[in-house]
Amino acid sequence: MPDSFFDYQSANAFHAYSTAHLIQIVILIILCLLMFTLRSAIKRKASAKRTIRYVIVGMLILSEVTLNIWYVSQGIWRTRTSLPLELCSVTLLLAIIMLLTRSRLLYSIVFFAGMTGALQAVLTPSLDYTYPHFRFLQFFIAHFAIILSALYMTWVEDYRPTWKSIGVALIFLNVLAVVVGIINYMIGSNYMFLMHKPLTPSIIDWLGPHPYYLLSEQGIALLFFTILHLLFFVLPGSWKQHSQKNNSKEKSYL
């Protein structure tokens, strides 16, 4: 295996929407479509449900463990940059607990905060390395697994959030931001980009200067959470009811 696969000084820089990046987006779409298409078949077999659930748990744990091994092996583990205090790191840990315990409270947080954060990370990665570097692969596997964990609980375990779940997720984000903000102040870090914007291009660049983008993120989070709820639950429910009414009318004419 070439040294550049692990070397943190690798010169192969990541470029957004390069071929390597677009391939990862396509892979995510395929995985989501497979999960949705096979959901009924998976539901019918307890062994299949258990296997997929533990595979996702394994992906989550392995991505976090190997990341820290990489930090240590490269001599770059630092409290200011390596603690699991980014939003996706926190929701990754919560996703593991959610899958193992089937917690409905954690499901609300992972579905809204986890999915939104992971999707944003996949589309606009804050990443220094491109394929085939370890960090490139670890980054996308971790974020894919967060998204798949929420979709598994939705499509296979039939979990459903309510409108109140959006409020729960927003409260969680604000409490987390306060806690992480205090830690940032104490150790001079920038977890969750609370102190300044990321150095690489991201959606935050569109939200104004610091600290105003922190307020803008509240509205963006509410918007994205609402869109997710509408797309996954409200609109499909309306279409199903409309289809059932049409079928009833057709039967009455027979």
Rank of each mutant, 00 (worst) to 15 (best):
M1H: 14
M1Q: 13
M1K: 09
P2Q: 15
D3N: 15
D3L: 11
D7R: 12
A11W: 04
A11Y: 01
A11T: 13
N12H: 03
N12Q: 11
A13S: 13
A13D: 11
H15T: 12
L22C: 05
I23P: 06
I25F: 06
V26C: 00
L28C: 05
I29R: 09
I30N: 11
L31H: 10
M35Y: 08
F36L: 15
L38C: 08
S40H: 08
I42Q: 12
K45T: 14
A48V: 06
Y54A: 03
V55R: 05
V57H: 03
M59V: 00
M59W: 14
L62I: 07
I69M: 10
Y71H: 04
V72M: 05
Q74K: 10
W77M: 00
R78W: 05
T81C: 02
S82I: 04
L83M: 07
T91W: 01
T91H: 06
L93G: 03
L94D: 07
L94I: 00
I96F: 09
L100E: 11
L100M: 02
R102E: 10
R104K: 13
L105V: 14
L106Y: 06
L106M: 02
Y107Q: 10
S108D: 03
F111S: 08
A113K: 05
M115Y: 15
T116P: 04
G117T: 00
L119D: 02
Q120W: 07
Q120K: 09
Q120T: 09
L123Y: 08
L123M: 12
P125F: 00
S126R: 03
D128N: 15
D128K: 14
D128H: 15
Y129I: 02
H133R: 05
F136P: 06
F136G: 00
F136Y: 00
L137C: 04
L137Q: 03
L137V: 02
Q138T: 01
I141W: 10
A142I: 06
A150P: 05
Y152I: 02
T154W: 06
W155L: 15
E157I: 02
Y159K: 10
Y159F: 15
T162S: 12
G167E: 01
V168A: 11
L170G: 05
I171G: 00
N174V: 08
L176R: 06
V178G: 11
I182N: 06
N184W: 12
Y185G: 15
M186I: 15
S189Q: 12
N190D: 08
Y191G: 03
L194K: 02
M195T: 13
K197I: 07
K197F: 02
S202A: 02
W206R: 15
L207T: 08
G208T: 06
Y212G: 03
Y213H: 03
L214F: 10
E217D: 14
E217P: 09
L223M: 14
T226R: 09
L230K: 11
F233M: 05
F233I: 09
F233H: 14
P236R: 14
P236F: 14
K240Y: 06
Q241E: 13
K245M: 11
K249Y: 11
Y253L: 11
